[in-house]
Simulated assay, not measured.
Amino acid sequence: MTPPAAFATAPAGFEHEALFYRDDETFLAGVLPFVRDGLTRGEQVVVAEPPGRLELLRDAVGAAAPVRWLDMAALGGNPARIIGAWRTVLDETTAAGRGLRGVGEPAWPGRRDAEYAECRLHELLLNTAFDDGPAWRLLCPYDQTHLPRAVRTGALQSHPLVSTHEHRRPSTAFSRESAAATFATPLHQPSEGVLRGIYGAGDARATRRTVVTFARSCGLSAEQAQALELAASELVANSVRHGGGSGTVAMWRTDEAAIVEFSDGGHISDPLVGRRVPPPEQVSGRGLHLVNELCDLVQLRSCPRGTTVRITTWR
């Protein structure tokens, strides 16, 4: 095993590493050498952390350092938005002839179980999204003191490299097959309290009205209801065009969220759909990306038996 500060050679491709830390001290001991090494090499360094960690690291690096700081709580509230953001930064830095080095912590302590599930899928899909592209490094910190065991175990499966502030090694638990398997695994379904309906080609307006009525009954804001209405419009249209001409909508609430789920018989073979930023000239195929941008949490699963898009709006 080698010390995590030893970055003697440039990566041959995408280098995706999980850093396990216990406290502020070990967080800084693991991340600071990574950031400083990137600055020394003249790379573009981008740090995406939740606010507390962001301020801690910014104070340690120094306000004058040429680091781009991103609030991961805003960027990654819906983890399906993160890959598109990294792709945009990578394209910009590659066009400028520079290398990229990123720090990203989507699975911070205190997130909900559904969010952790999407963080895991996001981390798995990062390898799919960037393995065949330009070389760059991404370090993903994980709080081994406060995160659930399942989240920490998932990090070992989704990162080819794993480190602490003392050691760095390949992850023996890493699996490239887990991304496709997770994307194809159905979401857990509630057993009661679910309102269901069927929609077809002529039901877009009625489905939107039903979703808005449900949103208001859950006490969602006008802005949240409008986001769900737009999402419903896009997802019904997708079902009609690509999902066999019809689909089902399910709605239920929990103590902290209103949930609307769209399902149809179509099969999406690309697990990155909706996660890439569509080019300006692209006219169609923008719906799932728009849904990801609008909504609090979007969970997409697809297999040959059908596709489900679950939208969670926090109350």
Rank of each mutant, 00 (worst) to 15 (best):
residue 177 E to N: 08
residue 132 D to V: 07
residue 169 R to L: 15
residue 174 F to M: 10
residue 105 E to N: 04
residue 87 R to G: 06
residue 112 R to M: 10
residue 145 T to S: 13
residue 98 R to P: 00
residue 195 L to W: 03
residue 178 S to P: 05
residue 185 T to C: 08
residue 186 P to I: 08
residue 102 G to H: 00
residue 179 A to T: 04
residue 132 D to N: 13
residue 97 G to K: 09
residue 94 T to E: 11
residue 136 W to N: 08
residue 192 E to N: 10
residue 122 H to A: 11
residue 130 F to S: 05
residue 103 V to C: 04
residue 184 A to N: 09
residue 191 S to T: 14
residue 112 R to W: 02
residue 122 H to K: 08
residue 167 H to D: 15
residue 192 E to G: 04
residue 87 R to F: 00
residue 114 A to G: 00
residue 88 T to N: 01
residue 99 G to Y: 11
residue 175 S to Y: 00
residue 111 R to V: 00
residue 193 G to M: 05
residue 114 A to D: 13
residue 127 N to G: 13
residue 173 A to C: 07
residue 108 W to N: 06
residue 122 H to L: 15
residue 88 T to F: 03
residue 129 A to D: 04
residue 171 S to K: 02
residue 147 L to N: 05
residue 188 H to G: 11
residue 127 N to T: 15
residue 142 Y to A: 08
residue 101 R to A: 00
residue 171 S to N: 07
residue 142 Y to E: 08
residue 172 T to F: 11
residue 86 W to E: 08
residue 124 L to W: 03
residue 96 A to D: 11
residue 194 V to N: 03
residue 160 P to V: 01
residue 137 R to I: 05
residue 154 G to L: 09
residue 191 S to Q: 14
residue 79 P to S: 04
residue 140 C to K: 06
residue 169 R to I: 11
residue 110 G to P: 00
residue 140 C to F: 11
residue 106 P to G: 03
residue 98 R to Q: 12
residue 103 V to F: 00
residue 182 T to P: 05
residue 84 G to K: 09
residue 134 P to G: 01
residue 142 Y to P: 00
residue 90 L to I: 09
residue 92 E to P: 05
residue 193 G to E: 10
residue 144 Q to F: 05
residue 76 G to F: 03
residue 77 G to Q: 14
residue 189 Q to T: 15
residue 113 D to A: 13
residue 149 R to G: 02
residue 146 H to Y: 10
residue 95 A to D: 07
residue 104 G to I: 00
residue 173 A to F: 10
residue 138 L to C: 14
residue 81 R to C: 12
residue 80 A to M: 13
residue 151 V to T: 02
residue 172 T to P: 09
residue 146 H to P: 00
residue 179 A to I: 10
residue 100 L to R: 01
residue 143 D to L: 09
residue 88 T to I: 04
residue 182 T to E: 15
residue 148 P to D: 08
residue 81 R to K: 14
residue 83 I to F: 04
residue 141 P to S: 02
residue 78 N to K: 05
residue 111 R to E: 10
residue 96 A to H: 04
residue 169 R to T: 15
residue 191 S to I: 13
residue 78 N to A: 07
residue 156 L to K: 15
residue 76 G to H: 04
residue 173 A to S: 13
residue 195 L to M: 07
residue 82 I to R: 05
residue 133 G to I: 06
residue 124 L to S: 03
residue 116 Y to G: 05
residue 94 T to Q: 04
residue 191 S to K: 14
residue 158 S to P: 06
residue 164 T to V: 13
residue 163 S to K: 12
residue 101 R to E: 03
residue 117 A to C: 10
residue 124 L to M: 09
residue 172 T to H: 14
residue 136 W to P: 03
residue 166 E to W: 09
residue 142 Y to G: 01
residue 169 R to W: 15
residue 86 W to F: 06
residue 97 G to S: 04
residue 164 T to K: 06
residue 164 T to L: 11
residue 139 L to F: 01
residue 132 D to F: 00
residue 128 T to H: 13
residue 161 L to V: 15
residue 185 T to L: 09
residue 99 G to T: 07
residue 139 L to R: 10
residue 119 C to K: 02
residue 161 L to N: 12
residue 180 A to R: 13
residue 92 E to G: 02
residue 120 R to F: 13
residue 77 G to W: 11
residue 186 P to W: 07
residue 195 L to R: 13
residue 93 T to A: 15
residue 157 Q to M: 15
residue 104 G to V: 06
residue 102 G to R: 02
residue 129 A to C: 03
residue 188 H to R: 15
residue 80 A to T: 09
residue 173 A to T: 11
